[in-house]
């Protein structure tokens, strides 16, 4: 069995395991005890929390990969290409997770607060995070410059500055967004009976995130290899004596 075939088999097994953990997470979210003040609406939290936390993790992967790309682009072009593919994959996954965080947060807010949106520190910095990574993906998609990878790597490094600000916003400022549920002081936390639903869903969406990140990376690496092969073919053809005559 070739390495590529082994990786595909491992990916398929990971995908099946992820589906199983997602199903357990959904079951746990449905069967967790009803919350005293919010009733069943609080179950949005079981999906909102993992997506929001993970949307703070993937941008760091994007930032590290962008640093790696900038470091290796002169020293080791092959590694730089791999880092660039990883940066692109992690930026797209960030957009997906942040979109879910925004959508579930707004749906919960409309039902709990009576408003879809408010310009408090957490929501504003989170919207900024989403916009930064959407702009990264659009830059990759639309830029015709030969320096797209470098420009997007620089953008990724600046975009990562928003992550700690957004994460700490509910600790630094008084916000409409609820105070931290975990690690927010003596009054924070949830009933222990709700932990299985939180942890299973956190594990499930982390596994799903790893799966789509790996798949997106593999697709981008294939595209890079195809482009490199096409460029080599073009160069070989242009060096052949018959090339000038054909032109």
């Amino acid at each position: 069995m070739t390495n590529s075939r082994k990786l595909q088999t491992a990916g398929l097994l990971w995908f099946l395991l992820t589906l199983l953990v997602l199903a357990i997470g959904f079951y746990q979210a449905c069967t967790a005890p009803t919350e005293a003040t919010m009733g069943n609406l609080y179950r949005v939290f079981f999906y909102h929390f993992p997506h929001t936390i993970l949307s703070f993790v993937f941008p760091y992967l994007n930032c590290f990969a962008s640093f790696a790309f900038l470091y290796w682009r002169q020293r080791n072009p092959e590694r730089a290409l791999a880092a660039d593919a990883f940066a692109l994959a992690s930026a797209q996954v960030t957009v997906v997770y942040a979109s879910v965080g925004l959508a579930t947060g707004m749906l919960w807010g409309r039902a709990a607060w009576g408003i879809w949106w408010t310009w408090d520190a957490r929501l504003t910095t989170y919207l900024l995070l989403w916009l930064l990574y959407v702009s990264y993906v659009l830059l990759r998609r639309l830029s015709a410059s030969g320096q797209t990878e470098v420009l997007s790597a620089v953008l990724a490094i600046f975009a990562a500055i928003d992550i700690p600000i957004c994460f700490m916003s509910i600790r630094w400022w008084r916000t409409q967004h609820p105070a931290p549920v975990f690690g927010g002081g003596a009054d924070s936390g949830i009933d222990p009976s709700m932990y299985p639903a939180v942890l299973w869903n956190l594990a499930a969406w982390a596994m799903w995130g790893a799966f789509i990140l790996g798949l997106r990376y593999a697709i981008e690496r294939r595209r890079q290899r195809r482009d490199t092969a096409a460029a080599h073919q073009y160069l070989s053809a242009s060096k052949s004596p018959s090339y000038g005559e054909a032109q």
Binding site: H51, V96, A103, L107, A111
Partner: peptide, 17 residues
């Protein structure tokens, strides 16, 4: 509204992901 938005939130997650 709370019931509707709970279902919408779960559907939005599955749809996007």
């Amino acid at each position: 509204l709370a019931q509707k938005h709970l279902i919408y939130a779960y559907c939005a997650v599955w749809l996007i992901q």
